[in-house]
């Protein structure tokens, strides 16, 4: 009986638009929930880490001495002192590394975009830049150790650290610069050539200025990245609790090295120094990230 009525009610042809079945709706909802959850899960450690750093480090860095004094002459359990010696080391090592890396990275990118074409060397270079991106910082440090210390017989110094950081910074600069040069319209190059401008002048005066904001942004981000590297300073520099202005000689502190050293200090002073240095490092990195944003806004090509 019931089957007959059902048959009578059935349409001769299936409807054009069928509603989504329950199982499909459920799967869709589940997938959406999981995808949102994945994002939420990733936010947790970020907030947690930053909260830990701020909570433990902020009280330490609010003292003006922190920014104006070094740890010279202080015992490991003595409170007070500051880290300006380590801030100096971090900034100088990073900036010297930048001074070496930027020209190299810039020229490699120019080669890849403007000269290389599809040649074999160009492909090899692209491949090697990719490999260099993946070289662990400890391997870069060991390489500089074998080159600078064992082969040349020079001592550990801040400059050796800068050299190791160059290995880590160059591929980042090549990548960003390459992307930026690629999006410079060919019409600009052609217009310049049509005026009889040589290729190198076209690159220097037309292509690079157009891409400048993107390149500088990349440089700032790369600088922020290398300043937090710990492995090279651990291998290539000795720690000093006092200021050392000389990049080429003697022990030199930097924020990561200070943290690694004070980790062996079980007192409250050691605890404060570690987290104070951590928040200082995060602040410096944030500063460079902000600089990157400001530069990209400021120097962006005027389109009007």
């Amino acid at each position: 009986m019931t089957t007959e009525t059902a048959d009578l009610n059935r349409l001769a042809t299936p409807p054009t638009f069928q509603s989504v079945s329950g199982a499909r709706k459920f799967k869709n909802g589940l997938a959406t929930a999981l995808v949102y959850l994945a994002f939420a899960v990733a936010i947790v450690p970020l907030v947690w880490v930053l909260w830990t750093v701020v909570q433990r480090g902020l009280p330490v860095v609010l003292d003006a001495d922190w920014w104006q004094k070094s740890l010279s002459g202080l015992l490991s359990r003595q409170q007070g002192g500051g880290v300006y010696h380590a801030i100096y080391g971090t900034l100088v090592q990073g900036l010297v590394c930048g001074l070496i890396s930027v020209p190299i990275g810039l020229f490699v990118a120019i080669y890849l975009v403007e000269y290389g074409g599809r040649s074999r060397l160009s492909k090899a270079t692209t491949f090697m830049v990719d490999i260099l991106t993946g070289v662990p910082s400890i391997v870069a440090a060991l390489f500089v150790y074998t080159l600078w210390i064992t082969t040349f017989g020079l001592g550990r110094s801040g400059f050796a650290v800068s050299l190791a950081l160059v290995l880590l910074m160059v591929p980042v600069i090549v990548r960003t610069t390459e992307e930026m040069l690629k999006i410079v319209p060919d019409e600009l190059r052609e217009a310049s050539y049509a005026l009889g401008i040589p290729k190198w002048k076209t690159i220097v005066k037309i292509v690079i200025p157009t891409a400048l904001s993107g390149i500088l942004t990349g440089v700032m981000l790369a600088l922020a990245r290398v300043m937090g590297e710990t492995a090279p300073v651990l291998v290539l520099a000795a720690y000093a609790p006092f200021i050392n202005y000389n990049l080429f000689d003697g022990p030199m502190a930097s924020l990561p090295l200070l943290m690694a050293t004070e980790r062996n200090n079980p007192t409250q002073a050691g605890f404060d120094r570690i987290w104070g240095a951590a928040i200082t490092l995060v602040l410096i990195i944030t500063l460079f990230n902000l600089l990157a944003t400001v530069i990209s806004r400021w120097l962006a090509p005027k389109t009007k």
């Binding site: 880490v49 990245r225 590297e229 990561p256 951590a278 490092l281 990195i285």
Partner: peptide, 11 residues
């Protein structure tokens, strides 16, 4: 990825 690895380690 901007957080230095030494801070991840301590955390």
């Amino acid at each position: 990825s901007a957080v230095p690895s030494i801070i991840y380690g301590l955390w």
